[in-house]
Design a protein around this nucleic acid. Sequence first.
RNA 1: GCGGAUAUGGUGUAAUUGGUAGCCACGUCAGACUUAGGAUCUGAUGCCGAGAGGCGUGGGGGUUCGAGUCCCUUUAUCCGCACCA
Length: 919
Amino acid sequence: MEYNFKAIEQKWQKRWREEGTYRVEVDPSRPKFYVLDMFPYPSGAGLHVGHPLGYIASDIYSRYKRQRGFNVLHPMGYDAFGLPAEQYAIQTGQHPAITTEENIARYRSQLDKIGFSFDWEREVRTCEPEYYHWTQWAFIEMFEHWYNNKTQKAEPISELVKHFEEMGTELLDAAQTTKLDFTAAEWCAMTEAEREQVLQNYRLAFRADTMVNWCPALGTVLANDEVKEGLSVRGGHPVEQKRMKQWLLRVTAYAQRMLDGLEKLEWSESLKEIQRNWIGRSVGAQVFFDVAGMDRKLEIFTTRPDTIYGVTFMVIAPEHEWVAELTTEENREAVEAYIAETKRRSERERIADTKRVSGVKTGSYAINPFTGREIPIYISDYVLSGYGTGAIMAVPAHDSRDYAFARHFGLEIIPVVEGGNLEVESYDAKEGKVINSDIINGMDVKEAIVFMFEEVERRGLGKKLINYRLRDAIFSRQRYWGEPFPIYYKDDVAYALDKSKLPLTLPAIKDFGPTAEGEPPLARVSDWCTEEGHPFELSTMPGFAGSSAYYLRYMDPHNNEGLVSKEANDYWRNVDLYVGGIEHATGHLMYSRFWNMFLYDLGYVCESEPFKKLVNQGMIQGRSNFVYRIVGTNKFVSLGLKSEYDTQEIHVDVNIVKNDILDLEAFKAWRPEFHDAEFVLEDGKYICGWAIEKMSKSMFNVVNPDYIVEQYGADTLRMYEMFLGPLEQSKPWDTNGIDGVHKFLRKLWGKFFSRDGALLVNDQKATPAELKSLHKTIKKISEDIENFSFNTSVAAFMICLNELGDCSKREILEPLTALIAPFAPHIAEELWHEALGKTTTVCDAEFPVFNPEYLVENSFEYPVMINGKLRFKQEYGLDKTQDDIAEHIVTTEGAQKWLEGKAPKKIIVVKGKIINIVM
RNA sequence: GCGGAUAUGGUGUAAUUGGUAGCCACGUCAGACUUAGGAUCUGAUGCCGAGAGGCGUGGGGGUUCGAGUCCCUUUAUCCGCACCA
């Protein structure tokens, strides 16, 4: 009987579905384990062979944990709001809900073929009102809370209002947009609109008039992580800076906690480093500089107060609020021209020529608080308005940008740390002896930094301060296909909708582009307002809104009372293993942590971090194939002969190429223009060229998992994807080689059934060699799964089978079947029932336990002296006297000690020769 | 510029964590069975060399009895951040 994967896989997928094999419920009697994949955005192109890589790995792990006795939560759903469906809608008029629905159906059928152990009854879709109800709910909660830096947690806005009523801003330490100062009396005198204006300065979800990333091509604003090098991540359109009134999330409030939280997480060091850089904490000092002839103090931020004696000028950002005041009459024209030019330049241009030095004098002077000297104040766009205070003290001797600026404008350069060659470049002195600096002369830099932090405070010039690079997340999008904001306006004052009115459902529309006035699509909906006629917010939420708390919803997906019940959350807690791409490092993974910490503060969830362990699977690239057409003909020349002709390289569909050999008939049938193609062959074959490229339709290198399942079966696909290489590594997909894995599964089958279908499984006793082979494999597989080293697992299975030869003993095959079940569940299930006669699912078969006794002879033992002879590691047949050993000893010292009767720690034997004795 | 990662046969990779480099596959070659082979099975296969033997983990240096593994240095590729004061 042949291994009929098609029949087997269909049979078991159907049974699993009918019997609800993968359904899970809260069960306090068993330990839980939560394995999560980053849910996909269902694009129109469907899944390619790269998408399931992570799903397969997590599925293996889930099945393994289940076999180890854990109650495993392993859900799947769809991140269904987003730009592509909407762009498609704008072009075709097709409602995004419909395309999304179709795409989801396609994804589902593709996923089902691979045999995942998902509990589909817990499926969530972010675009469904029952789901986004809780996205909107969380937004209202954020709107109704502020962050108290003193208690380090979110607190209700009502508490803040009480504080204002009692003492104004006195003693308040809150996360805020700008620092406000008012008394209780002033607060009480404010109108409702004025108060709301003030509160927006503290709310965790708030509306503010700020500089935002505006993408004209997409017609929307974007968050920082959605912009890369001045271009939108999606689509690669130019992005410009624009001042707009937008909704934001005050993620900066949680900057320190998000930074600290990283310590406890089992994430890759590189991913943690990306988040650390993104948060960008830096410890420095705020220092106030007097402005000559003005009752003004210019505030700057510096991490190097020790270099203050080397400050010879100051620079403020063109957007700095005091530009107009600091500019003197004779410089006004130049300053205004410079600011106009800065505004005109796009973000991309600015990034492109960071080398260019530009700036103008304001005409004002500041006074160096330590030297008392007057120093000029400049405006330049190398100082960013968004970081620190938008003003810097320039130390040209020890900062490359200040140096370039000083050189360009002929400003004085005073070295304050020994070393470097200031004729050529600045000297970034992180250590060394301080010079030209009065009170700190002779100190080491490190010492001087500490001293100066204190000195600045002592002299009342400023204080120690921590700055973060992290920005608040811009949360509104001028688009249609997203969650509506549960916000309405009365006289332009924002109010949150009552939570009992949720969900606020997205109205159906026909035209998905912006209005003629440039308003978001929702402006077209005439009755987009409350019952009282107050207009709703027109923009919708960004993609990351729906994905920020989906892992919580899976715990309790059908709950209509809350996001997740306390009971479900107390049991499932948080995600034990999260598998997904590293591209979400500064987006989804930051927002999710923020969102979760906020809900944690409010007591809705019991864990402060959402994802305990995270594994980043690599990207699967495409492997393209080429044919070479002789220019001007319809004749194609094989790779090895192409240098003899003038040829043109053409991408050819990889699905009609096997092992780089072109299927000539399939090629002719592929496209009409190749119908009459002729070929120049080598050895009767047409060999194609190849290259590693991104997997995409236009390169004809997309491999559909459906096709692989059709040809080889899901179990082969699963094992081959793992066999391809280490999970974390990016690698090209290459269908060549899949035969090896497929052959292995057929061999496995052949252990249970003969070709004519006879059952080979017998009850003979296993030999020590067979048991050794089995237990070596059990040990290896257990370790590999825990380490996510699935590629070596597959190799271990192959070795085991090779070693077992034609052994068909139940004693060996039964544990082997349970061992391979996480990897190849269909064939394992079939063998489990049909060959081993089991009646329960292999998914619940106990994972075989490693018994070291079977491996004893293989272990490294310490040598034992018996009658003057060394008994040691029988495998090498050693039976040596002390003298024999002395001859082979490389370290005389080791030999000496050994001969003196001391016990060696380890004896190193290579090719039967002792090469070392470690004492 | 800063930070992180990677580099091993024709290809994907492995190496008990400092101990016989190349496991397991793909590919290639040879053989068997076949009308046939893009099927199946068996064997060989790092490179040079007829052989003995020599050389081999991007390059150079070091530590060590012993280095793919540790240290220094250098090159290449990939990724992240980037006028962040």
